[in-house]
Design a protein around this nucleic acid. Structure first.
Lengths: 205, 205
DNA sequence: GCGAAAACTGTACCGACGGTAGGGAACCGG
DNA sequence: CCGGTTCCCTACCGTCGGTACAGTTTTCGC
């Protein structure tokens, strides 16, 4: 029982690395079984087909993603009672975390799935959608808290503003990869941070 | 001679649709030749292999992309002499264009290539990088023009600010797809527009 | 209208890959 | 020691990317 989960995890580890580097089509099952030292039958014992592998991979990825966000923003919350300051601090911490990754962000599985749309069944697309909705809820709640205290200088839809956090992260990942400038993603996050600060800054002068 | 280019274009048309929908791995040559009514030998007469197809596809995509940006922002420039107003107008026009696409943005080939990194040779990755650099130059020039007239409320790196345009577009495409909300991308662009307006707005009150 | 190049077609083949089928075997807790 | 879990082994299938190469049609310049 525990052995099975161990093997499963090893497969998922190898698959995640390969998928983020080469896409799903570029990831062969033969390659995964070679890397994990398992046989083909062993692989298909754990996953009915490649689609189920993708599903398990995405589920694990999203869970982990949520955990990281939980950690960062709860830590930021501990450091400041003010919801705006806590959010800005959270963005800073996230930016630093991303900046410390030696080879840059390895890529977002949600984005990879989006680039393959039709190749996956509705299950997977629904997991993807729910992941994006969870981001929206998370950051939306933060902006609502902020708006209890600060008035934005421009009226903006809270959900759209919340989506912008994900937008900047996903877009930043792509640009970092295209430009081969890993520091681009954390930089983009900091610019967004400046925008948010500007948005809720009380009118000075 | 002209016939050859016609066939080539037909292949590229079919390939672009399929690649944006299913990724490169999900696009089979057999499928492309079926759709264009060509034979396999005919396909390989035009493209040595799949990699060369990808290269031609990306080159064509980037050229077209540049053309669209040229049109939109030169039109915006005609409508306003003020560089800030022209840029804000350009974003608005772009947002409207994207909003009018019935099924949303079909996807960005540059982003697809990024999700497949290792599967392509350096040629293609270099084209991708150059495309992102051209975006940076384009929008960077606009922001420099703006800064000749307006002082930003916060000091920001011009290139990073320029990259943010691409970031929001790429990220918006992904989020629109993940959420299955095509209107998300134009909405994100408008939020960014608000941010830019805020950034260069002279301090009021 | 003719000859040469361009633009294909047809056929046969290869290895890699995703996936299926089914018969085991080692391990492990009760 | 039984039985489930967790695999391994072998053999096989269809699809796909790609090669090889000979033959045919289409197009274009002269």
């Amino acid at each position: 029982m525990r052995k099975g989960e161990e093997t499963r995890a090893k497969i998922l580890d190898a698959a995640e690395i390969s998928v983020l580097a080469k896409g799903f089509g570029g990831t062969s099952i033969d390659e995964l079984i070679a890397e994990t030292g398992i046989t083909k039958s062993g692989f298909f014992y754990h996953f009915r087909d490649k689609n189920e592998l993708a599903k398990a991979l995405l589920e694990r990825y999203v869970e982990n993603d949520e955990r990281i966000y939980d950690e960062i923003f709860s830590r930021a919350r501990e450091l400041s009672d003010d919801p705006l300051q806590a959010f800005l601090l959270g963005l800073k911490l996230l930016s630093e975390l991303l900046s410390d990754l030696p080879n840059g962000h390895p890529g977002c599985l949600v984005a990879v799935i989006c680039s393959h749309e039709r190749a996956f069944d509705r299950d997977i697309q629904e997991i993807n959608r729910q992941a994006a909705l969870m981001w929206r809820r998370r950051f939306g709640a933060m902006f609502r808290d902020i708006m209890q205290v600060y008035r934005p200088r421009e009226p903006l839809d809270v959900d759209q503003l919340a989506d912008m956090v994900s937008t900047v992260i996903e877009g930043g990942i792509i640009l970092s990869k295209a430009l081969k400038e890993p520091q681009n993603l954390p930089a983009q996050l900091l610019i967004f941070r400046t925008f948010v600060r500007l948005l809720f800054q009380p009118a000075t002068l």
